[in-house]
Design a protein around this nucleic acid. Sequence first.
DNA 1: AACATCGTTCGACAATGCCGACGCTGCTTT
DNA 2: AAAGCAGCGTCGGCATTGTCGAACGATGTT
Lengths: 260, 260
Amino acid sequence: MAGSIQSLERAAAILRLLAGGERRLGLSDVANALGLAKGTAHGILRTLQQEGFVEQDPDSGKYQLGAELLRLGQSYLDVHELRARALVWADDLARASGETVYLGVLHQRGVLIVHHVFRPDDTRQVLEVGSMQPLHSTALGKVLTAFDPVARAELVESEREAFTAHTVTDLDVIDAEAAAIRERGWAAAVEETWAGVASIGALIQDRRRNPVGAVALNGPVERVCTTGPDGRIGPVRPDLVVSVREAARAISRDLGAPRF
Amino acid sequence: MAGSIQSLERAAAILRLLAGGERRLGLSDVANALGLAKGTAHGILRTLQQEGFVEQDPDSGKYQLGAELLRLGQSYLDVHELRARALVWADDLARASGETVYLGVLHQRGVLIVHHVFRPDDTRQVLEVGSMQPLHSTALGKVLTAFDPVARAELVESEREAFTAHTVTDLDVIDAEAAAIRERGWAAAVEETWAGVASIGALIQDRRRNPVGAVALNGPVERVCTTGPDGRIGPVRPDLVVSVREAARAISRDLGAPRF
DNA sequence: AACATCGTTCGACAATGCCGACGCTGCTTT
DNA sequence: AAAGCAGCGTCGGCATTGTCGAACGATGTT
């Protein structure tokens, strides 16, 4: 694995730093954080600025991400085949279920949301496209870790934060559940990331049956889960599971996956 | 302006090529298009891939944009101050007017949409955030060219396609209208880009009164424009103009612009 | 089966980007 | 006010680093 272009690696590190860090960063901040000489960091930043990947506040001289990234990110979505095929089915799933639908792909140590259909009511919602969700505590993530060895490897490396009392962080428990997920073909996460929210997810495969992403339905536990006679929250509703699995199958078929 | 990092410039060119080109491109396509040796192009692509900026189809070996761009693009939005301040006001404007609202900033030779509020009805709409609109034939673009000298300079360089019979492409006419726009403080574009669609836009300024963006309302001419007694389409509705200008003023004030 | 094409690897050369020290400007301090 | 202090930007020498072109192996085409 020889020969990575140094200046490119550093430029990428700078972009990630700007993306993660607070608001804007000065030249010295950047140089310090990455252990570069100021002159070096400046050269990279100047080029990035010239190309539109970073912008510089005229007053303070501080740097932040540039607009070109937004444009390219949009282009990524335009080209994304999985997303294109899934648009209609995700929409149908949201309409039929009345809940939010996410479409995600594995990216580094998390699930990148590439499509988001709003819950079909009028409440205000924030578009999550482009944001990341954890691997260990969401339906999307669980599906991917269960079926994609790469995802499982990334999960091992990640830190598995406990978001709620229901979050499972123990690797053995996660692996056991992954086996069950492979068996039955779908995953659920009830209040494991956000309190009061449950999600159901299923796998999307391409024409060679490789896992390429997952589709999931998100909603309040009161609607997504069954309630026992004692009023307790039970497992997720079987009819919603069927809907999600059908959507996943339909998208996979659109991608050329064999018909089973 | 000495000292731009060559490999970075080339990497940026490759990304733009992948963003503009059709679907996926092979290594030779990329190398040819940019006049690079195959080995050189490969080195850059390998690094870009390692960093997540491009992905490679395992079968065909062809390259396409990578997911990291989507994530960074999202981060750009998160950091964007103008957008953050404008969210509420844009929402109000859409609700009050019942029409689509765009928020745009100058980027290269066009207007980059950084926020998009759907028309508040249930029809299916495509999110335009991250896409570009022309400078010469939209309300957003006209506002920016009228108030931002940089935008006007970019306009001169751009090619000004005639999208409809109403599109104005002559520079003198555009300049004359720009003067009028500066005078009255708002711009309109009626069927100049899309047939049947009219838009009204106004300028957003920062604390030092620099033009930093524009907000516009988009809708069908039947609703956005007045109709004369003979049923002909007239100028845009004055009440909508007032709403748009008030929204722009409110956002500018949030950014720290003086209160007039 | 021979050919063409494509992505990838490799080694040599020198161009290129890296580094550290030095201006410069704007702001706070004494 | 003068001095000090950060902060960004620039410059030139050095060697590291990226570039180039040719050759390789795999794939699929004629």
